[in-house]
Write a protein that binds this DNA or RNA. Structure first.
Lengths: 223, 223
DNA sequence: TGACTTTAGTCGCAAAAGGTGACTAATTCG
DNA sequence: CGAATTAGTCACCTTTTGCGACTAAAGTCA
């Protein structure tokens, strides 16, 4: 079902497709028939006339039938040798998919990040880069919002941030920061989730605001 | 189909070598003899058994005779078509070189960033990525310190930050942040630079400290 | 010499941002 | 009804940050 890369190109495009499954992050893996029963990231050989970004989206579409809601290149990975495609290097991408719409095509399976099967060293490096990149982009791009349905409660949003960051956040601080950023607006709907007070639903609706004007920071520990 | 010279790989490794020349940032360009008199970033074809990072360092050594003091991968660039190597994609790197030691080999020339000759679209994208990456790493890695001699005045350090960030900084705030970060220690030397009070010399000497524990931020403007 | 200029280095205030516990509100469960 | 549970807000305090104004030590020049 997948071709080996032609001899003219010696690189592959690999994508880490991430979604939030319940309380855990999960990524999509595949086990191609001819690939020695090892799980691998969805990948694709470059096609002429196709940009790298387009190729990563195509790889996602092959796996899920739809493009990711956000994607970014992670870089080129080549230092570890073994890769399913036997390409010399791989250009890695991360893509995010809301879980509601995330039913994989045959041959692809979601794996929780906490419990991944063995991957090639190179693909493991790509997955680690994906996690780091997501976390560092979290305050620069509305990533978390796009993993949620169009309307959501603030608790759901906070849980998504906690999931992606891998740490707990204080409720009041989270909401105050969100308030100050003018990123969400309330709807007039409320949702009762079993026990407890019903929560108001919000939607992502960013308002223009001036860019925070900060000086320098020295946020590194040593060399 | 167009016939291409046979090569084992269809990607190149390109490096943006940056230095501080007086009051300006400069990058190193070369004009290979057979390359239609266009200036280009130093680049290199991958060699078997050589990692990407090692290849970028070798490219720098070919250009300057010494390795950069710091380097980082920028990613893979392939969307713009024209590239001196005619490689399908290029893996871009940034490297920093202190200007004291930065005498280029024949064929290589420093160009101030403000006044670059025309480059291929792809290499222009790599240069822009280099600038962005430097600026975002500035508070995460001791980049600016390594562009300075082993001992330096705090004004020189601030000027280096201003040069790399492309904006002015407030003196008192800069020094306070630096103080709090335990990154420099004073020497007992002072330097008199023409008129004005002599400045104390400092050296980079980071002390261990606990990582700042911050919550979330929403630092993006819109989508 | 003494006023003026220039660069270095520091202080302290006011405002903004951030951490956190405790409070009120609305619902379900038994 | 009262306890439990989840949502939402407040108030207080600490830390961080922007910034103007100050002191210090040199050179310049009349």
């Amino acid at each position: 079902m997948r071709e080996r890369p032609s001899r003219t190109s010696s690189y592959s495009i690999d994508i880490v497709l991430m979604t939030a499954m319940g309380n855990e992050l999960a990524i999509l893996l595949t086990r191609g028939s001819a690939e020695r029963e090892r799980w691998a990231l969805p990948w694709r050989a470059p096609q002429t006339g196709e940009t790298l970004g387009a190729a990563s989206i195509r790889a996602a579409e092959d796996a899920l039938g739809e493009p990711p809601i956000w994607a970014e290149q992670l870089g080129a990975f080549g230092d570890a040798k073994r890769h399913p495609s036997e390409a010399e290097i791989s250009v890695g991408f991360v893509g995010l998919v809301p879980h509601q719409t995330a039913s994989p095509n045959p041959g692809y399976t979601w794996f929780p990040m906490r419990d991944l099967p063995p991957l090639s060293p190179r693909q493991r490096a790509i997955v680690e880069a994906a996690t780091r990149t997501i976390q560092s982009r979290l305050d620069q791009a509305p990533i978390a919002f796009r993993l949620l349905p169009p309307t959501f409660t603030l608790s759901e949003l906070q849980q998504m941030y906690e999931l992606l960051l891998g740490k707990r956040l204080h409720k009041a601080s989270f909401r105050r920061a969100l308030q100050g950023a003018w990123l969400v607006e309330p709807t007039d709907e409320w949702r009762s989730e079993g026990r407890g007070r019903p929560a108001q639903l919000f939607r992502y609706a960013p308002k223009k605001r001036r860019r925070p004007h900060r000086g320098v920071r020295f946020d590194f520990l040593y060399p």
